[in-house]
Amino acid sequence: MDQERNVCIRADRLSVRFTDHPILDHLSFEVPEGTVFGLLGPSGAGKTTLIKVLTGQLCQNEGKAEVFGKDTRRLTAEEHRKIGAMLDNYGLYERLSVYENLAFYADIYSIPRRGIPDILKSIGLYEARKTAVSKLSKGMANRLSLARALMGQAKLLFLDEPTSGLDPATTREIHDILLQQRKKGTTVFLTTHNMFEAESICDYVVLLHRGNIIERGRPVDICRKYDHLNKLHITLTDDTELALDNNRTSASAVKEFLEQGRIRSIHSSEPTLETAFIELTGKGLQ
């Protein structure tokens, strides 16, 4: 991790159990300020539970959880104000309009309502400001939920699967907004089971499986660590498909195919976070 940055979130041997079943099992990690941190794992891995603990909604059974250097169970109003959250379920008032939802939270956060039109324009919802939330598409509701999380001038954002079920264009828009926030120095903590999302926008990731951290680091470093999974996929002119290890041992075979003019296509498949996860657990992320 980046040693020069201040730590925004710290978990130290954090454990949560429901009855006797461990949901989070002695997790330890740090999230540096101004980074995008991804928590990857399949459904049921404990991602949402971890967000609940870090936002002070749930108390851990063991260990420490700190945000801004303070125990998450003892966050003050001022510290809460620095935290924005976009949860798995939008948490929006469906009968109220887009504008009314933001106006309500502007009152709660004690920020002037006059800034709302600019926020709506920045997320592309200005034209829909009078529309009831119940009539918004999933992507629009997601963007509104994100806008609400951002409007308190948050220094730390918790996003629970922010692009789940969205089309690629809306996903891209949300990624752009998150990257802009990172530029401003905001720390983004997001959970996802989308490996492409994690690889493209996260500075650091942690792979979570059944409440345990099974891998951590920069996405590129994790992928490099599993480079032995790199394959060459060759389709021959007679439609035979081959998968060869991408190393010296395959060189002579490839050379031979090339000389014989038998190769129709050739491409390499570099290891991804998903392949690393499958290698570690035997299961996919979805």
């Binding site: 002070g56 909604q57 809460h80 935290i83 949860l87 379920n89 939008y90 948490g91 609400r148």
Partner: peptide
């Protein structure tokens, strides 16, 4: 049910 209360509590209400 709709999680609005959870968001409110997280907003320090």
């Amino acid at each position: 049910e709709k999680n609005t209360l959870r968001v409110l509590v997280m907003s320090n209400v």
